[in-house]
Design a binder for these strands. Structure first.
Lengths: 347, 347
DNA sequence: CTGTTAGCGCGTTCAA
DNA sequence: TTGAACGCGCTAACAG
C-alpha cells in the first residue's frame, strides 16, 4: 500500500511551491511559469504518478464534475441513454452518477435534490418524469437553479429544457421509405391501450400520417387496435385485417408490437412478409425487431443521441456557456433501421 | 438562489459548536451530547435544510462513498447488474458511478485506477473482464489494495474475488423441471461458434447434463450445432434433428438462440411447441424469450442478484468488515422462468 | 514576467 | 463540551 501522493510531494521533487503545481495543471492566469519549471513539474507528476484529489479540488471549486442520470433502471432503453450521456460527459471531463427512479424511500425525488445540495453532483439528466411531485419538484429546481435537462420529458414546458424525438418527422421518414421502396399506399395501424386514449406522441404520429397521405394525394387508411387482446383474439383480428387490406400491401404501425402482430398473422396465413406484405414499425421499444424472423424494419428512437445531446447541454448550463433561462426544447430525428420486413429496391 | 448552508450556520442557530453538529450527525463516540442540545441541532438542521458537503466530508474521511461500475454499456445485461448494485449500494449509503469499458482513449482501464487514486471512488465492481491488460491490471489492483469484485469474471482466480452463476446447478434445475413436468428424457442441444471450442461455462453445463442423465439411468443424447449457419441451412438442420429425435421429445439448449431455432423449425413443421415438443433454454442472453410465441421457458442468469451480491461484498471490503485477502468465489443459482414452450403439470 | 506566501473552503477529530 | 488543528488544493495579494 503506497501512501497518497500530494501536490506537496510534487512541489518538493520539482523544487517549486505548490501553487506552481496547481498553475501547471490548471493553466491559472495570473501565475506565470517558465518552461523549465513547467517541465520539471510535469516530470515529477509522471514520476510519482500524482493524481489530484477530486474531493479537495471539488471542495475548492464547488464543482464535483459529476452529473446524475435519473431514470428507471429496469427499462432497457435507459441503457442507451446512459451510453449517450457517458460519451458526451467523458468528452468534457464529467462522470455519470446513477440515480434510479423508484418508490423506495431511499430514492425519493428529493434525494436527488439533496445530492445537488450536498455538492455531489453538478446537475441532472432525467430520463423519467418525476411522477407525483411534478409541479412542486419543478419549483424546487428553479429555486435552487439546479441545472436540469429532461429526456423525453416535457414538450414545450416553460421551465424545463427537454430533448425529445421528433415524432412527426419520424413518421414522414418512414412513409418516404415505404413509398420509395414498395410504391404502395401505406395503411396506418394505431395500437392503443384500453379506453382509446392516445398519448401526445401518438397524436403527433397520426397527424403526420394524415398530412403525408394528403400531400401525396392518397386516401388515409387507419386501423385502430387495442393492445389488450389475448393471443387468440389478436391473431383473428389481424388475419381479418390483412384480408380486408388485400395484397400486396404496405403497413406502418405506431408501436413495435403492432408490427410483430401483423407479421405473425401474415405468416400464419402463408403470406410472405417482405414480399406481399411490407411491414414497418414507427418505434422499437422492446428492441426485439432484429431478432425476429423476418426481422422488422423500423424507426428507432434515438435514445443514445438524446442522452448525448442532453448531457452536452447540461454541461453548457453548468459551465455557464448557456444561460439558465434558456429552456428551449430540442428535437432529434428518429433513425431508420432497414431490415427484412420491407422489400428494398436495389439502387 | 439561496446561499449554501454550512455546519457553521447550524451551530450558530442551535447555540453549539460545530463539533457538536458533526457528533450529532455521525454519532461520534467520545463526544457526548446532551439530549436537549441534540434536539436543538436536529431542529436547526431541519429548519435550514442543512446538507453535509460531500466533498468536504470525503476529504476528511478519505471515503467518497461512491463505487464504480465498470462494464460494457452497450450490453443490455449490464443494466440488470446495475440495478442489483444500485439496490445494495443504496442500502449502505453508497452511490454508483458509471465507467464504461471501451476502446476510446478517455476510458482506458488505467483511467479506472486513476479514479481510485483521485479518491473519486472507493472500489470497483467489474462486469467486464479488462481485455488485454489482464495480469498487469491485476498486479496494479493488488499493489494499491484497490477493493475490487468481478461479476462473471474469473472463476477460481487467486487474486480476484468473483461472483458467478453456478452453471452446473442451473442445468440440474432445468433438467429436474423438464423431467418432472413432461417425463421425457431430454436431448441436449449444444450450440458453439466456429471451431467447436466450448467456453468454460458450456463445459460445466455439458458435464452437468451427462452426470444428471447418468444418475437417472438415461442415455445422454447430445446434438452439437454451429451458431454460424445461415437461416436456410439452420432451418434444414433443425428440421432433420426433430425428425431424428421423434415425438414427443424434450429439449434443453445451452444457449438461448438454440431454443429459438428449434422452436421455429418445429412451427414450420406444424409441430406444436409446448405439446409435442418441449423446448427449454439454459440462458436468455438476448432477453427475448418472453416476447416470442410461444414464449420460451428458460433458466435466467441472475444478473441482478449478482450485481447485488458483488456490491454488498465490495462494501464489506471497503468498510473493513471483510479482509482484503479473502478472494473467494461466490456462486449464485440461475432463476427458473416458466413460460409456454414446456407443458407443466398442474399441481 | 515569474514565483511566493498566506488564507480559504468545510467538516472531522484530538487534546484540553 | 469545546477550541484549534488538520486534510488538500486553489487563488488573491504581493514581491523579486
Amino acid at each position: 500500500m503506497t501512501k497518497r501522493v500530494t501536490s506537496f510531494d510534487v512541489a518538493k521533487l520539482a523544487g517549486v511551491s505548490r501553487s506552481v503545481v496547481s498553475a501547471v495543471l490548471n493553466g491559472t492566469p495570473g501565475i506565470g511559469v517558465s518552461e523549465e519549471k513547467r517541465e520539471a513539474v510535469l516530470k515529477a507528476i509522471q514520476e510519482l504518478n500524482y493524481q489530484v484529489d477530486a474531493q479537495a479540488r471539488g471542495m475548492k471549486t464547488g464543482r464535483s464534475h459529476c452529473i446524475a442520470a435519473y431514470g428507471n433502471v429496469s427499462n432497457p432503453m435507459f441503457l442507451q441513454v446512459l451510453e449517450g450521456m457517458q460519451g458526451a460527459c467523458a468528452a468534457h471531463g464529467y462522470h455519470v452518477l446513477l440515480y434510479p427512479s423508484s418508490k423506495e424511500p431511499q430514492h425519493t425525488i428529493d434525494g436527488l435534490l439533496d445530492l445537488y445540495l450536498q455538492r455531489r453532483i453538478d446537475g441532472i439528466v432525467a430520463l423519467d418524469r418525476p411522477h407525483q411531485a411534478n409541479e412542486a419538484w419543478i419549483r424546487q429546481l428553479v429555486k435552487h437553479r439546479l441545472p436540469y435537462v429532461s429526456v423525453e420529458g416535457y414538450p414545450h414546458h416553460e421551465e424545463v429544457p427537454s430533448v425529445l424525438m421528433d415524432y412527426q418527422e419520424s413518421i414522414r421518414r418512414a412513409l418516404d421509405f415505404l413509398w420509395g421502396n414498395v410504391g404502395l399506399p401505406p395503411v396506418y395501424v394505431e395500437m392503443h391501450h384500453g379506453a382509446h386514449t392516445l398519448g401526445w406522441g401518438d397524436q403527433q404520429r397520426r397527424e403526420a400520417y394524415e398530412l403525408w397521405m394528403k400531400e401525396h394525394g392518397l386516401q388515409p387508411r387507419i386501423a385502430a387496435a387495442s393492445a389488450d387482446l389475448s393471443w387468440e383474439e389478436g391473431a383473428e383480428h389481424w388475419k381479418r385485417c390483412i384480408q380486408e387490406w388485400g395484397l400486396p400491401t404496405a403497413v406502418l404501425t405506431n408501436w413495435s408490437r403492432g408490427a410483430v402482430y401483423v407479421s405473425r398473422a401474415a405468416q400464419m396465413m402463408g403470406v410472405p412478409v417482405g414480399e406481399q406484405l411490407h411491414v414497418m414499425a414507427a418505434d422499437n421499444t422492446k428492441r426485439i425487431h432484429e431478432y425476429l424472423y423476418p426481422s422488422i424494419t423500423s424507426m428507432e428512437v434515438p435514445y443514445r443521441e438524446m442522452g448525448s445531446a442532453a448531457a452536452e447541454r447540461l454541461v453548457e448550463y453548468i459551465e455557464g456557456r448557456r444561460p439558465y433561462e434558456d429552456k428551449s426544447t430540442q428535437w432529434l430525428p428518429a433513425i431508420l433501421a432497414v431490415r427484412q420486413s420491407v422489400a428494398t429496391v436495389s439502387s
